[in-house]
């Protein structure tokens, strides 16, 4: 399938926005301006963008502790994201959630989740609800390959398949469960697990946004038509550490491996494709990047200058 040029440029813009956002998050950490830690999505941008661009605004997603990319790809704004990361009042969750719990109802984002695999039930429940309300919405559950170790995932995949729920499970296999290679924790052939439950299962190169998008589009529309859930395995790589503080990584993964994967940077691959097809030249791409840098800078400024929530808010929102 040939993707239209505007669409590829839009992917480039979205992926670059996530990359620049995450680089800025790292800077905020290194300059001690951000409380706590953050888990960067750098290297995996093609998955969030390729999948979310296949969704309607009112379709649901659930995300993970490594979730900034999913939120942005589903339509969150940079300034309110930064505000949440700094615990500020205009943040998406009024500073109560932080990096690992960003939720945005307006864009169908039911929340990032800091329990590995913890949102599998929520996403499947949202799909069930969409079916019951006959809303034709689809739910996408993003998770890393670490979640393959969680029993909940298998419980809900079983029900999704039994009841043909409109859900797409997206497994971002970035090779590492925190600091341990997934081959040391994951027996057998991963794809055979969802296949055993009767899910349509596809394994693809997660660095190729075109492949991610065309596959996601097919699986999402299939689910929307009531043909049942699907499982998309995207091979990818976490360019940075498990979190921003994970800097010395040699004890669990070789530098050479990192270098090899960086040659398959999803943004550079897409840029190459755009140039080869003469859809954009170096200058045009640099122009997009400059524009996004200004957006990121303005977002950080906004967040740094934003007020903290009123301390009295600590007792608010415990109960609806």
């Amino acid at each position: 399938m040939k993707l239209r040029s505007e669409l590829l440029l839009r992917f480039y813009r979205q992926m670059t926005k996530i990359r620049l956002f995450e680089e800025q998050v790292n800077q905020l950490y290194l300059s001690a301006k951000m409380p706590g830690l953050a888990h960067l999505y750098i290297g995996e941008e093609a998955i969030a963008v390729g999948v979310c661009e296949a969704l309607r605004r009112d379709d649901y997603i659930t995300s993970t502790h490594r979730g900034h990319g999913h939120c942005l790809a589903k339509g969150a704004s940079v300034d309110r994201m930064f505000a949440e990361l700094l615990g500020k009042e205009p943040g998406y969750c009024r500073g109560k959630g932080g990096s690992m719990h960003i939720a945005d109802q307006e864009t169908g984002n039911l929340g990032a989740n800091a329990i590995v695999g913890g949102s599998a039930g929520i996403a499947t429940g949202a799909a069930m609800s969409a079916r019951m309300r006959a809303s034709s919405q689809v739910a996408v559950c993003f998770f890393g390959e670490g979640a393959l170790g969680q029993g909940l995932l298998y419980e809900v995949m079983n029900m999704a398949s039994l009841w043909k729920l409109p859900i797409l499970y997206v497994c971002e296999n970035n090779q590492y469960n925190e600091y341990t290679h997934y081959r040391e924790t994951t027996a057998g052939n991963v794809a055979r697990r969802p296949e055993a439950f009767g899910l349509e299962t596809v394994s693809i190169d997660g660095q190729d946004v075109g492949a991610v998008h065309t596959t996601a589009l097919r699986l999402v529309e299939r689910a929307r038509q009531g043909k049942g859930p699907a499982f998309l395995i995207c091979d990818t790589y976490r360019f940075h550490g498990h979190h921003v503080g994970d800097i010395n990584r040699a004890y669990y993964r070789p530098k050479k491996e990192e270098e090899e994967w960086k040659r398959r940077d999803p943004i550079r691959l897409l840029a190459g494709r755009l140039k080869a097809r003469k859809l954009a030249d170096e200058k045009a791409l640099a122009g997009i990047e400059e524009e996004l840098k200004r957006e990121i800078e303005a977002g950080v400024e906004f967040a740094l200058n934003a007020p903290y929530p009123d301390p009295a808010e600590v007792d608010q929102h415990v109960y609806a």
């Binding site: 039930g121 429940g125 069930m128 609800s129 419980e155 809900v156």
Partner: peptide, 25 residues
């Protein structure tokens, strides 16, 4: 459709309940 027999998956049905509750049910 409204009185649903589930598998023996307590965590799963509790999770489905949370997701359904968050989205209008």
């Amino acid at each position: 459709g409204r009185v649903i027999d589930s598998p023996i998956s307590e965590a799963g049905i509790a999770g489905l309940g949370v997701g359904a509750a968050m989205t209008g049910m």
